[in-house]
Amino acid sequence: KRLCLVCGDIASGYHYGVASCEACKAFFKRTIQGNIEYSCPATNECEITKRRRKSCQACRFMKCLKVGMLKEGVRLD
């Protein structure tokens, strides 16, 4: 089984260019469509796991980008 490159949960397929789970796919889409900017309360190096993926949105979004999710893949309509 493929794992989500962002949080390590089971991937539902390839989304925005990267093997990812439904939760991270939806999080990435919401962030881009809403043009949301997050800031990390710590040092921008929070560990993102299935259990902790909700704890820091800034680091989760940075990890989405780091593993290769493409903003261009999100439709803005």
Score class of each variant (00 low, 15 high):
2 R>A: 07
2 R>D: 14
2 R>L: 09
2 R>H: 13
2 R>C: 09
3 L>C: 05
4 C>V: 00
5 L>D: 04
5 L>V: 05
5 L>H: 05
6 V>Y: 03
6 V>M: 00
7 C>V: 00
7 C>G: 00
8 G>T: 10
8 G>S: 09
9 D>S: 05
9 D>M: 07
9 D>N: 05
10 I>K: 13
11 A>H: 02
12 S>N: 11
12 S>C: 14
12 S>Q: 14
14 Y>V: 14
15 H>L: 07
16 Y>V: 09
16 Y>A: 12
16 Y>E: 11
18 V>Y: 02
19 A>F: 06
21 C>Q: 00
21 C>K: 02
21 C>M: 00
22 E>P: 08
22 E>M: 05
22 E>Y: 08
23 A>K: 11
24 C>S: 01
24 C>W: 01
24 C>L: 01
25 K>V: 15
25 K>P: 15
26 A>Q: 13
26 A>L: 09
27 F>H: 01
27 F>R: 02
27 F>D: 02
27 F>Q: 00
27 F>K: 04
28 F>M: 06
28 F>T: 02
28 F>E: 02
29 K>D: 12
30 R>K: 14
30 R>V: 06
30 R>H: 05
30 R>Q: 14
30 R>G: 12
31 T>K: 05
32 I>P: 03
33 Q>L: 09
33 Q>F: 03
34 G>P: 00
35 N>H: 13
35 N>T: 12
35 N>R: 11
35 N>G: 15
36 I>F: 10
37 E>D: 05
37 E>A: 03
38 Y>T: 03
38 Y>M: 03
38 Y>W: 14
38 Y>A: 03
38 Y>Q: 01
39 S>D: 15
39 S>I: 15
41 P>Q: 11
41 P>Y: 12
41 P>N: 14
41 P>H: 11
42 A>K: 10
42 A>G: 11
43 T>A: 13
44 N>T: 07
45 E>A: 08
45 E>W: 00
46 C>H: 06
46 C>M: 03
47 E>Y: 08
47 E>C: 08
47 E>Q: 10
47 E>H: 05
48 I>R: 04
48 I>G: 08
49 T>A: 15
49 T>D: 14
50 K>G: 10
50 K>W: 08
51 R>A: 12
51 R>L: 10
54 K>S: 14
54 K>C: 05
55 S>Y: 15
55 S>K: 14
55 S>M: 15
55 S>N: 15
56 C>H: 03
56 C>V: 03
57 Q>N: 07
57 Q>A: 12
57 Q>G: 14
57 Q>F: 07
58 A>H: 04
58 A>M: 07
58 A>I: 00
59 C>V: 03
59 C>D: 04
60 R>T: 13
60 R>W: 15
60 R>L: 15
60 R>I: 07
60 R>H: 15
61 F>H: 12
61 F>V: 06
61 F>K: 07
62 M>S: 14
64 C>F: 02
65 L>R: 04
65 L>I: 06
65 L>E: 09
65 L>V: 10
66 K>E: 10
66 K>A: 14
66 K>Y: 04
67 V>F: 07
67 V>N: 03
68 G>R: 00
68 G>V: 00
68 G>M: 01
68 G>F: 12
69 M>Y: 07
69 M>C: 00
70 L>M: 11
70 L>D: 13
70 L>G: 10
70 L>F: 10
70 L>A: 12
71 K>Q: 08
72 E>H: 05
72 E>P: 11
73 G>N: 09
75 R>I: 11
75 R>Q: 14
75 R>G: 13
75 R>D: 13
75 R>H: 08
76 L>W: 10
76 L>R: 10
77 D>N: 08
